[in-house]
Amino acid sequence: MTNFSRSTYSMRTLSFLTKRYRLSFTHALATDFILSGKSGLHGHDAYIEITCRLSAGTSARDCGAEDLDRIVNAHVLNRLNNQHLNDIIEHGTGESLGNYIFNCLERTEIGSRLHSVSVVETRKNRFNIEKIEGA
């Protein structure tokens, strides 16, 4: 029988909840135009991963994963899904998209718990936007 119990486990830990959402969009990058001379208009079936910090002793349910769905839908997906990014976000790059999403969500009720936003554009590249703790 194991001797492990909650009382013997005193290490401090951090917990995070991440939810992944599908986001489809089109965009055109300035570098594509410079390299090829063409508009470079293309699209992605991307994913965004939203990570929130959990308070000590809370579960994913306590954190309000359903609230997260509601907020992400209202502030991100409804605005950006199936849109042309360059019409909404300057440059329309993955970096700009990640920063835009982070800034949008930071102003909502999950803002204080928001840890990071990742834009998974393809299986070969992603953009991570992460809060600098203590900044």
């Binding site: 440059h91 700009s96 920063n99 953009f127 991570n128 936007i129």
Partner: peptide, 13 residues
């Protein structure tokens, strides 16, 4: 969009 000094941006390839 100006850089937000409280967040860091990473590309992963």
């Amino acid at each position: 969009m100006p850089n937000n000094p409280r967040i860091k941006t990473q590309i992963v390839r």
